[in-house]
Design a protein around this nucleic acid. Sequence first.
DNA 1: ATTATTTGTGCAATCGATTGCATAAATAAT
DNA 2: ATTATTTATGCAATCGATTGCACAAATAAT
Lengths: 343, 343
Amino acid sequence: MEHTKKTTIHDIAAKLNVTASTVSRALNGNPRISDSTRKAVLKTARELNYAPNQIASALRSGRTQLIGMLVPTINRSFFSSIIRGVEEVANSLDYRVIVSQSNEAFENEENAVKAFLNARVDGIIASIGKNTQHFDHYKQVLERGLPLVLFDRTTPQLLTSQVVIDDYQGAYLATSHLIQQGCTKIAHFTTERKIDIYKERYRGYVNALEDHGIAHNEASVFSGNLQLEDGRAHSKLLLQQPEDFDAIFSASDYAAMGAMQVLKENGLKIPEDVALVGFLNEPFTSFTDPPLTTVNQFPIEMGHTAANLFFNALNSEREKIVTKKTVLQPELIIRASSLKKKP
Amino acid sequence: MEHTKKTTIHDIAAKLNVTASTVSRALNGNPRISDSTRKAVLKTARELNYAPNQIASALRSGRTQLIGMLVPTINRSFFSSIIRGVEEVANSLDYRVIVSQSNEAFENEENAVKAFLNARVDGIIASIGKNTQHFDHYKQVLERGLPLVLFDRTTPQLLTSQVVIDDYQGAYLATSHLIQQGCTKIAHFTTERKIDIYKERYRGYVNALEDHGIAHNEASVFSGNLQLEDGRAHSKLLLQQPEDFDAIFSASDYAAMGAMQVLKENGLKIPEDVALVGFLNEPFTSFTDPPLTTVNQFPIEMGHTAANLFFNALNSEREKIVTKKTVLQPELIIRASSLKKKP
DNA sequence: ATTATTTGTGCAATCGATTGCATAAATAAT
DNA sequence: ATTATTTATGCAATCGATTGCACAAATAAT
């Protein structure tokens, strides 16, 4: 099969009896090209169905129009929505997004960043893995003068732009809501992991209790991996404890779901006997019975913000890169699992 | 800030008093290089922290190690899982994946393919949008001799490798299962859209009924957009109809979920009064009450398969590209929503 | 010992677009 | 009419790696 040979600026140049330089300048809007030449070039380019070879352009100019995007897991709603958000902004500016996943493995994370650098991406947008040991690979990115934007899972050890949601505020809203619904004995599911976001949620929970004059009892806080099974296990313990409880605020929707299952299995009514609030607005939360109250993190908007920060950094003078930490406000989505009073 | 200048093969060459050609050959395992030189080159490369400039390599060799991947929507579990699957295989072979989404808009689809070609990807893996008007943009890909793999939403109009699941079989399994559970009046939710996969599911439904000697009644088939609201609407109609029904097989989990809601709102018990089966194994299906029986499409495996077909095409002689249609077998995941008899 | 073959490197062109510098032609200034 | 300036284009190097061809040195064959 005869492959359509791709047209280059040289083909256009030959047809018009000018040089490739002239064509290149005409196509790039260089003002030193006469109107007549420019029009002729554009016309011929269209006729020959010219498409620029971005690889050649990238080699010469040093800009590939590629963004490397690293997430722990591609097929988790939160992350895929962020990718979506980044893609939307990037594509509108004629940038493309390369995705890689770390699967929470430090080695994968290092390799992905290296691969991005070898592919000569113009910068990186990433969420740090749970098992990250150090940040040397990210520092290399910064040393090369490339924009680096961290989202959701960030670190103060890197001086670079970041986007997070206000986890404290989300937890505070969630807990306050439960209190407003008349709950006073509110358990909390969290994790030991040293990731800031969970500490912040814990802090929001504690502060909301205190601000409403409720003594916070450390026996009501359960630590695990925040998966469905953890939520189930914590709930069983709760049921065995002598202390009563009338609500659970879980730092993850999955663990909240585990709680919902166990509570229902034990004949407890939600929200009448126990009110339930999760975190993250996983897609399934609107389909549980009852639907689960949760905290929306606006992942698509987070993606937009990350992309905007990226392009800010990209377009600023290297010396003047403004590193900016953007904190998005979460939203409490109130559903039946916590709604004891009719509003 | 001083940016670490990237080392090139010329730096290595200079240090060893050889030429760049020799270095290039040594690094690429060309057999015409002596062992001693090769070792020296590798050693120096390591010392200088050399990383190849893939852009330069791509320009010369014509291979970018990039795969363009086009999906309708990035943040839908099915598609993000396929992306995940493709990414896993691609990364293990040192290829990177660029993702774009069409949002089901034909124009976006065309633009994405063009952008991929301009970025000089080595090939494309795509799922056709619902509103695709023609396939010229895909034909261009093939004319350039680039591998093109279609998954899930494919078309016989393009002679290229494809991966689909056996929708007919999935529907047949689902319907047969309902019959085995004792159901005889089984409604079906489908869509008018001219996409093969839904026709196949419809066919599987009808054939399963006939094979079990159950007359198929067109009044039990409801057509819509297969979203939650459609499922709700269809179910309300079903309840108003004089004919009785004891099961619903929905071609989508969302519509099945809508049915579950309406049935429960009307005091019907699932599965005792009406058994329910969906399709796609959306993540939420295991969290509904009762959990929803559905058909698993193995999206990650589908991504693996798509990637493998891609690399097969890439590595075969252009003249001999074997276009292969792979049909994956789906799995019926039986959950409480359809389990009337204890097994 | 002479010719043929193999082995290891170098030379230089190439991939396609970009860009600093030079230069011819056209226009403006004196 | 001559010089200065502007305008439009060409020349050639460059980005970094790859590769066909040439060629000297080393080894094998006669």
